[in-house]
Amino acid sequence: MSVTAPTTLSPAQAARQERLSLLAKADPAQLTALWAGTGLAPAHADLRPPEIGTVMVRGRAGAVGAAFNLGEMTVTRCTLRLDGGAVGHGTVQGRDKGAARIVALIDALFEAGEGAALEDGVLAPLRATAEARRETRARKAAATRVEFFTMVRGEG
């Protein structure tokens, strides 16, 4: 995780940040399947129905200098309230409205203190998938690590 954590973030906020960051990057098909597997369908009302938009991605000149606008990426967001009153916010990469709603529902369930079942049913498998994907790429990259040797001119 590279999210900057202001010192003021409470443990509950830090957990929510990690959770939402994981869900935002999940493959929508896997997220949808895992959610369906929980059998949950909490009654809720939309505060902001799923909406597709963009976020301007910024970089820095020379990686550390002045910020500049690199280009946009698509995101979908959704905010809803469970009948019990808990509010959930979902943002996902891409244009899957269903996935944004699922993330908002998961966020709201955690806010309502009913997240425990989701930890094993949804979050753990997503975490495992993300980690395995990252690990595989890192292992393939490591296999292409190269040592160059400088030839001395005039030799051989």
């Binding site: 590279s2 999210v3 939402l20 991605v57 020379g62 990426m73 943002t91 996902v92 891409g94």
Partner: peptide
């Protein structure tokens, strides 16, 4: 790949909203 982090005003903190592949040359 790098994560893309955005401040979400409703939450009061930033989350990663996705990940993008980038090529960087210095």
């Amino acid at each position: 790949r790098v994560p893309v982090e955005v401040d979400i005003p409703e939450l009061g903190f930033a989350i990663e909203v996705g990940e993008v592949q980038l090529t960087e040359c210095e």
